[in-house]
Each structure stands twice: as structure tokens, then as C-alpha cells.
Design a protein around this nucleic acid. Structure first.
Lengths: 242, 242
DNA sequence: ATTAATAGTGTACTAAATGCACTATTAATT
DNA sequence: AATTAATAGTGCATTTAGTACACTATTAAT
């Protein structure tokens, strides 16, 4: 029998369930900024284990419905937020024999950045504020508190050298609003003129000619994103905490 | 019946195999530098599918043997290289319904950096040079060519703002050798005095007092790592390609 | 009209790169 | 023995992109 035929036979009789294998899930940490505070979307679990507890959106990969893991993440996000095209990035995989009482479990975590105005909640979901350490007050299911902490760290890091914070803003925004987002994520103050020079030079936003917005004191120029791609800076920016 | 008892019952009767779930593997891209060329470790597959083809080391998570995915990666690395404490970092997860003929498959890819002198090959393994694009000449099993390409990109990026390249060197090395590693990975030339200032200032290496090495022309000071942790620079270094 | 607050700009200073020229050492060549 | 070639190692001028801080502009509230 040819090798090719042998391989065909092998595949014909292959059965995933002949082996002990881990559970595989996808979880999504969804960030937004509300009233100058970083928030994470949490949702109440409908089923065991941890029924009734708060958790981040996620669940099993549905191999009949999802063609890849990114699609699983998109699906979860859409279910909980109605949101279609957010910033979505894979954080990494966590897999061990302790995180899930059902057994050896592997999860791929994604993190998303959304503008809160565009979110339509599914039932049993809400925003939850992050404190300084990135840890949520509520008791969360599984290792979700840790996943959030890691996602928050990644978000902070990327905020220092990319234009990622643009993705929490509505379509039109002022430079001060953008700076405030950076400061909220980083937990410190940025220098105004330096920040503006940096953002303008990176070419990721453009003035909306003739449109401005009344702030508490005076008019401010409105801007829009000119590109949805992240811009990577060669240097990090860092806030002062004084 | 209490919720707690219900949960207990649920878990007692839970069976992973009641659902259609993906295969879960871990793959490892192992880099080294040999004669100023970046190499990747490949190994010949013993079983179907792709029996006899070249692939990067990897395989199923063994939920009875591995307590977490990092351990799976370490195990694979040890099997193929005899190597114990290399630089090992998770690259990310790839999961879809096309990468494995056995069905929906999820793999967590790690990449490792080793010093070639310390490697003891398992059978059926060898080093394979990367060309400019990072693509290997051989036809590789699964999507392994893509995994290597992504790992190579990550390695290049990290070389621009961390001290990662230290991990391909033997315990004692000269600054020129270190610079050459950086240049090999980046595919360009670095400025000598700038490179030295940067490395020295980062405090990750130290002179071995009184030890030097004869190079092609003259003696060169030997250094050792003073820390196995990566140092992250605030600015990227970038090579010239002239 | 004055004040307070935020929008927005200008400029000096600084850190850490690049670019390039220079000196030092040693094997190989003559 | 002197010269050459090649790489080790240093020094300094320039450039880039930050920080720090002071200044002007605009508008609501007093």
C-alpha cells in the first residue's frame, strides 16, 4: 500500500476522542473608557461551573461554527456588545490543569478596545471599573482576574509606543480628549506639546476642517482617525506621576 | 438541592468528549546562529499526517504529563535538543479548520533561542538555514513555514528593543560577536560605538576581568551575561542596509 | 470688565540614537 | 625588522524626538 493511501486510511479512522485532550476556549477582555476611568466588560455566567459568577465573555470554540479562533473571539464580542469592528488583538494562550474544574483547560485570550457609546449590551453584562493595579473588585470566575491583569499590562505597554488609544474614542474627538485617554490608560500625566507633536507627526489623525467642539471653556478643533492601522513609534512616551 | 451540590454533580458527570472540540498542540520554533546564519531546528515526522516530512518540533499537549502549556513546550524542546534552560517565549495561538487534515486544530507556538554548541540532537533533527524572507527552502508540514515566519518577525522586532540576542551566545563572548548576532538577526549593519554604548549602559553584560580572546587580528575583551532577564530599551535600534 | 480654565504654540533643554574619524593591537607580508 | 591589513576599541559632532515650561488665545462664568 502506498504511503499516500496509508495516510488516507489513517485520516479516515482518526478520532479526536481517542485521546485525552484539553478543553479549548476563547476569552475576550473588552476595555473601554467611561468618565475618565478604564472599564472592563463582565458578564454573568449562565451555566456551571461558576454559575451566577461574573466572568469575561468567552466560551468554547465551536468547531462547526467558527473557521478560526479569531472568528470565535469576534463572535463572543458581537454577542456581548453588538460591536462589529473593534480593535481586537490576541494576547496569548493560557493552559493548565488548575484553571477549570472541568479539567485540563486551554484558553486563548483576546483583548478588545471599544468606544462605549457604540456598545449595545447583551443581557447579564455590564461595565466594571478597574482600579490602579488593574484588578477588578468583583470575584471573577476561573483565572479571569489574572487574564484581565495581563491584558491591562499589554494595553499599557502598547499605549507607550503605539496609537492604540485612538480606538476608545468616538469618530470625532479633540486632541485633549485623546491625550486624556492616554493618561487614563497610563495612570499619569503627559506633556501637552510633546504629545501633540508626536501624534500629529505620526499622521494617524487629521483635522476635520471647519469643525470644532465647545469644551468647558473654549472651542477645540475636532479630529478624525485617518487610518485604522496602529502606528508604532521608535521611542516610548512615559508619563509623570508627580 | 443547593447550587453547590448542583455544581458538584455537574462536574462529576462532565465529559470532555460529549462535545466536538479541536485538537490542541504546542509547537516550538528553535532559533540559533551558525556561521553568521540564522537557523531553525526541524525534525522529520515519524507519524501520519505528513509522515516523513520536515516539521518544527511539537505535538499534542499530554494532559497527564504536562501541568501547563509551558511545560509541554519545555518537554518538546528537551526531547529535540537536550537543552534545559533556553530563552523560551510564547508567540501566540493559531487555530483553524484548515491547518491539520485530522480536523479543527489549535496550536500554541513558542519560540526559543539557543546556543548551537549546547545542542544535542535527538534523532531525525537538523538545523536548517533561513533565507532573507525567513522562509525555509524545505517543504514543511502543516502551516509550519508560516509559524516560522511569524516567529522570525517577532525575533527581529525584539532584537530592535531588547537584549534578546544575548541568548544565542556561549557563556563567554566578545562585543563584536554580540554585535554580529544582532546584525545577523536584523539583516543589516549596526553602528559600532552606538551599539557598544547601548549594551554597556544597559548593564546586562560584564567584562570578565583579565580574560580576552584572540580574534583574526588582535585580542578582544571577553564578556559574560550578568543577568538572564531581558532588558527593554526605550528606543529601537535600527540597522542600515546600504 | 475681570477671572478662570482649557486650547493651542514656541522654545530651551536633554537623552540617546547615528555617522564618521580616529587610535590600539597583532598576525601576516615583505 | 619594518610595513600592511584587519579588527578592537574610543571620541566627538550631528540628529531626532523626547521633556519642561512658559507663553498666547478663546470663551463661559462672575
Amino acid at each position: 500500500m502506498s504511503t499516500k493511501q496509508q495516510e488516507k486510511d489513517f485520516l479516515a479512522h482518526y478520532n479526536v476522542h481517542d485521546h485525552d485532550i484539553p478543553l479549548s476556549c476563547v476569552d475576550v477582555v473588552i476595555f473601554t473608557i467611561i468618565k475618565d476611568q478604564l472599564n472592563v466588560l463582565i458578564t454573568q455566567r449562565e451555566d456551571f461551573p461558576f454559575k451566577g459568577n461574573w466572568a469575561i465573555p468567552g466560551g468554547f470554540i465551536d468547531i462547526n461554527q467558527d473557521k478560526d479562533i479569531e472568528q470565535t473571539a469576534q463572535r463572543k464580542l458581537k454577542e456581548k456588545t453588538g460591536y462589529d469592528a473593534p480593535y481586537l488583538e490576541q494576547l496569548g494562550a493560557t493552559g493548565n490543569n488548575t484553571r477549570d474544574p472541568r479539567g485540563w483547560s486551554l484558553t486563548v485570550t483576546y483583548f478588545a478596545l471599544v468606544n462605549a457609546d457604540n456598545v449595545v449590551f447583551g443581557k447579564d453584562s455590564c461595565w466594571c471599573e478597574l482600579n490602579d493595579g488593574g484588578i477588578i473588585q468583583e470575584k471573577l470566575a476561573f483565572d479571569h482576574a489574572l487574564l484581565i491583569k495581563d491584558a491591562f499590562q499589554r494595553l499599557k505597554n502598547k499605549t507607550q509606543y503605539t496609537t492604540i488609544a485612538l480606538h476608545v474614542l468616538p469618530p470625532k474627538f479633540t486632541l485633549s480628549e485623546l491625550q486624556k485617554c492616554y493618561e487614563t490608560i497610563l495612570g499619569g500625566k503627559l506633556n501637552k506639546s510633546g504629545f501633540r507633536r508626536r501624534i500629529i507627526k505620526s499622521n494617524v489623525i487629521e483635522e476635520i476642517k471647519g469643525e470644532s467642539k465647545q469644551t468647558a471653556t473654549r472651542m477645540a478643533q475636532l479630529y478624525r482617525k485617518s487610518d485604522d492601522e496602529l502606528h508604532f513609534y521608535l521611542r516610548e512616551i512615559y508619563p509623570t506621576f508627580s
